[in-house]
Amino acid sequence: MPPLLYADLDEAAARLRRKGEEGTRQIVGLVGPPGAGKTTAAGLLSNLFGSESAVVPMDGFHLANTIIDGTPLKERKGAIDTFDVGGYLSLLERLRHNHEDVIYAPSYRRGLEEPIAASIAVPREVKFVFTEGNYLLARRGRWGEVRNYLDEAWFVETPSETRIARLIERHVAYGMEPAAAEVWANGSDETNARYIETTKAFADLIVRWG
């Protein structure tokens, strides 16, 4: 396996612009543990590329609360088996083939903590699609198929103390008590983070962030 390449966000964007000169749609996966800043990085990249780009989050494929309520999955929401990987793969396939005038993708509404169907429009002329999520480089089960649809996979690397502090702030902002937020960030979130870190070696680029 080749050595990992490191870049900041501007360098990563320049790399993508060069690839975009090939003329075909570029699908870029931003991967990283909870709180790494994937969503913010994807938003900044989309701003740089303007109307030629769209952001499609993996989080739109969270299993709905009506599915996980009353099951052990509720206490592990955000773990790899609490997502609809088949649905996500189907969307990536459609984005890759780009045969439709507009493809509609789901988003994820924090606070509500639910996916919202068909809330992101990706027109055919969009040249750069940024999809961000925790498990894009995972090899477990069908997750191993995700990489087939990505032109680039970038691992967003952030110091753990920054990442955990962000998570606690986020959980509190969306209604958790501070003590519960700290337990969740250092418990369930951190369990997922340790697994995600093991997938870093499969990235094309490590984006230093935060």
Rank of each mutant, 00 (worst) to 15 (best):
F128Q: 05
L112K: 11
E100P: 10
G111W: 10
E100S: 11
L91F: 10
I116C: 09
A121L: 12
T131K: 04
G133H: 00
Y88A: 00
V102M: 15
F130Y: 09
K127N: 14
T131M: 05
E114Y: 06
A105M: 06
R96N: 07
E113V: 09
L136D: 01
A105C: 10
R96C: 03
I116P: 09
V126L: 04
D101F: 10
E114F: 05
A117N: 09
V129Q: 05
L112S: 14
E93L: 03
T131I: 06
E114D: 05
L137A: 03
Y135C: 01
Y135N: 01
I120G: 12
E125D: 15
A105F: 02
G133K: 00
L89M: 02
A105D: 04
G111S: 13
R94D: 04
F128L: 09
P106Q: 13
Y104W: 12
Y135A: 02
L95G: 01
L95P: 04
R96M: 01
T131Q: 07
A121E: 11
T131H: 04
A105P: 06
R124C: 09
V129S: 05
Y135Q: 02
K127E: 14
K127F: 14
L91C: 14
N98I: 09
R94V: 03
N98H: 15
G111E: 07
I120P: 08
L91H: 11
L92T: 00
E125K: 14
R96K: 14
L137Q: 01
A121Q: 11
S107Y: 13
P123L: 05
S107Q: 11
R94K: 14
E93P: 00
E113S: 12
P115R: 08
L89K: 01
E113D: 15
